[in-house]
Simulated assay, not measured.
Amino acid sequence: MKLRTTFYYLLIFIISTSCSDAQEYLEDSHEVVVKESKDFGILKGIPSSFKLEKYTILDPNPTGKYLGGSAFASICKKNDNDYLVVAMGYGKYDDFAFSELLNFDLNIQTKQFTGTSLFQENLSKIQTGGNSLVKLNDKVILSLFYGKESTNSINIYMKSSVDNGVTWSGPKMINTLKDVYQHAANNRAILLSSGRILLPMAIGGAGSQNYIFCYYSDDNGDTWQNTKLLYTKGNSLYEPCVEELSDGRLIMTLRNSSGKIIFAFSNDDGLTWTDFVKSDITSPDAPSTIAKIPGKNLLVLSWNNTDRIFDYHNRSPLSLAISKDEGKTWKYLFDIENTLNVGAYYPTINFSKDKMLITYTKKNVGDSRSVVVFSEVSISSLEDLLNKAN
């Protein structure tokens, strides 16, 4: 009875602190209305039997410090063949367990990982993770990640390299909002054609009133500001992903609780967002990733294509679609992972010269550990699938 009473008061404390955070920033927030759409975000076609080449699984020291495995990778190109990969290494796979960031050097020609090392030790009371890598030029790379202090406090940090990832500065805190549960999914930061660095963010968690916003920098990461907080009633918007369209507008995909992917748009490099629309693309309460194929007017989308009731372990299938009209219609290409009782989630999309690289976190139901899976597909194969009749 005493244990139950203690748990009850702890639950009340967590709820009350989360509510106080929401109220604190309510005056600086703006409600958006999500509209139903009959002509945007339409998913067409049936998936092909195309299979990606999956060649390496990150599995850091499973009998040692990282018993929870690896998860939530971010990737940055160093040269044509070599890529910097940073992933979370868990002591135990849990949102509130110890983790820190690990470095893996990936050669996509030999398909081997070398030089595994500690990228960033845990600098917070709970865990460090959620990394994004942004390459500003041939030499400068930024790393943006979070430090989780409590159930209602996360800080955002940045470290930089001026020698193409060989050495790194110490971390510095960049968040302008304090004492809130703010977070970004892995591999989310983006360098816009204007030179602005954009980090899409959210405040809150599953089942709570959430806010989305962006941190941005117009001076190569020296200083950071935040945009206005946005929310919608009766839905949880979080873990946004942003891509720049051919006409300079930005498109955003949003994890939410409606059962469909929500899109939004910006005409001012992410300062403001309009035209929130619920697509007909089925998705559970899980994040999606959108990216533009370099040099082509084609968008790709990776998401969990299922209406299954929210379950961390059953986020499957993980699917891929492509659009040639700026996201208005999508062609369902294939499933990256489609196995029952397997979770495949938090995908990343990056590009080499002629290939698309996809990573995702994979965890079997009942397993205590997760792994990061890497796969690749030629861009010409994607175009062939797009051009084939259903």
Rank of each mutant, 00 (worst) to 15 (best):
L271Y: 15
I57C: 07
N305F: 14
G130H: 07
Q225N: 15
G204P: 02
T361P: 02
D269R: 11
A184P: 00
W330V: 09
L58A: 11
R315E: 08
F351R: 03
L299H: 03
Y345C: 09
Y360L: 03
D311A: 10
M356W: 14
I358T: 11
G170M: 12
D367N: 13
T272M: 05
L26G: 05
S48M: 04
N210R: 02
Y83D: 01
E121I: 01
T274N: 14
T348R: 10
G45C: 11
V277S: 13
A264E: 01
L142T: 01
S49H: 14
I261A: 00
S99A: 15
P317E: 11
K353N: 15
A22E: 04
A264W: 00
E27Q: 06
P287D: 04
W224S: 05
Y238K: 08
F263E: 02
I126W: 02
S20R: 12
K125M: 14
N175F: 06
D222W: 00
D163G: 10
D247A: 08
F145N: 03
N387Y: 08
R188P: 00
F276S: 04
L84R: 09
D105I: 03
F98Y: 15
Q120G: 01
I14F: 12
E243C: 12
V166L: 12
D138W: 07
L123Q: 03
L245P: 02
C214E: 10
F374N: 08
Y157A: 05
S49Y: 06
A189V: 07
E121T: 12
L386H: 07
A206S: 06
W303P: 00
D275W: 07
I14A: 14
N152W: 15
S208L: 05
N155W: 01
V300A: 11
N390Q: 06
K77R: 15
M173E: 15
E376W: 01
R255V: 08
F213C: 11
F50K: 06
L67M: 02
L245H: 09
P287A: 14
F104H: 13
K44A: 12
V372D: 07
L101K: 05
K172W: 03
F96W: 12
K278H: 01
I57L: 13
D163E: 04
L191I: 04
N220I: 09
S99Q: 08
E239I: 09
L58W: 03
D367A: 12
A97F: 06
T348I: 15
D325A: 07
E337A: 15
D269T: 06
S266T: 10
